[in-house]
Design a protein around this nucleic acid. Structure first.
Lengths: 230, 230
DNA sequence: CACCCCATTATGTCTAGACATAATATCGAA
DNA sequence: TTCGATATTATGTCTAGACATAATGGGGTG
């Protein structure tokens, strides 16, 4: 038995056994001591391999009890949320942002309605409207936003460069375009659209809230995934 | 300086520095040797901590060059794709599956069109149709599916218990309900619906393909996420 | 000046052994 | 029989030191 990268060998052997069904959910994996003997390596090495399999959601480890093949192969998908400009340019089209309305709302003195910037605009791919955007930026968190001309600069791209977020929540649903929205997107009223609503935070404090509306035929959200987010 | 869980301390200290912006993307992190001295622990311990930060997408490590704060805080979301039955019951409604059509297609001898089971049906939450499903199951991969009565048993739930998948691909888009679909879902034709198309594989071999159609007002896909998929 | 080779450096991986910790199994007492 | 203390066991974490490996920066050569 060659001793190249024992950790990887253990990991990929077990992974193969699990994926192929030779090891089934709930099955017990030999204890680390035995695996170490079997592969001729130290227990720490086995432990590292098992640790990575745990992170990948393939196995579950319990003190004293041992390690087991994880139960329901986790149903979580890693969804990539790309920058719109990048996405459109990747398609070979020219990206353009058209700011329609930029207003400052709220008041620093009023705790109930802190000062925010409200921006509405349209993302274009070539000559076609690609998405309608309605965004609110918390000025208390991003004061420099007040000095930017969001009629010309897309707020998403700017914000990202300025102050990347650390937490977010997305809601995705299908809605019919209202007449004003339909006009902006150059589609018929009632056209099925994908609505993406995103709240982002940094260190627990809200930065921005955005609602994007994509005509159904112009956008697919794709989520790819195996078990490991690696 | 207390020496409790040095690995975690290093990890959370760096994480705090990065999230707060004290360390900015591209910044260099002290070399492992120095961190080890600073925290009074072994280099292996520092290495483990940095390894986990790498997995979480917070830092990037390069041989000889050193470790750096990762560039664009990764925009990947962990999206949970729950079992429909579970989801509806979690809402306090009664789940019911109504199989509408179950047919066997294809031929074992024909390589171009292997034998498959095609199932159409509707998921109900209480008395309301919740989703329309159109599914194809590869009989060569799941032969026992031929013996199940999918008019009564929901195929998704059954398949999951039978043969969990290891890879999948989702496409999400908005479409208007066609008239037959609208009838089945008891909504007006053209109503905006969320279309979820999922292909699943096990060890690289296709198991099932499913298309689910949700009336826009009855379903929200929600993706929650910080940076770490942990 | 351009190019290739090599020493240096920081990460990557591993070992053997130690102690900590949590969960289970066992045994004794009420 | 049931409950609670205790021993056992397998994972969790750490250390100090070793060697491997890849990338960089420099130096020498054409």
């Amino acid at each position: 038995m060659k001793r190249v990268n024992p950790a990887r060998r253990i990991q990929s052997d077990l992974e193969a056994d699990i994926r192929s069904g030779r090891l089934r959910p709930g099955d017990r994996i030999p204890i680390e001591q035995d695996l170490a003997g079997q592969y001729g390596c130290a227990r720490a090495t086995v432990s590292k391999a098992l640790g990575e399999l745990t992170a990948a959601g393939l196995i579950e480890r319990r003190r004293k009890a041992g390690s087991f093949v994880a139960h329901p192969p986790v149903h979580s998908a890693v969804m990539t949320v790309p920058d719109l400009a990048e996405l459109i340019e990747a398609r070979g089209e020219t990206y353009r942002w058209e700011g329609r309305s930029v207003r400052t709302l709220g008041d620093a003195k009023d705790r109930e309605s802190p000062p925010v910037l409200r921006i509405e605009g349209v993302h274009f791919g070539g000559d076609d409207p690609f998405a309608l955007e309605d965004r609110i930026i918390e000025l208390s968190e991003v004061p420099s936003a007040a000095d930017v001309d969001f009629k010309r600069q897309a707020p998403g791209t700017w914000l990202l460069a300025q102050l990347p977020w650390t937490e977010a929540r997305h809601a995705i649903r299908a809605v019919g375009a209202k007449s004003a929205e339909a006009r902006a997107l150059q589609v018929a009223a009632g056209t099925a659209c994908l609505e993406l609503e995103r709240d982002t935070w940094r260190s627990g404090r809200s930065i921005t809230h955005v609602r994007q509306l994509f005509p159904g035929d112009r956008f697919d959200l794709v989520a790819e995934f195996g078990n490991s987010p690696a």
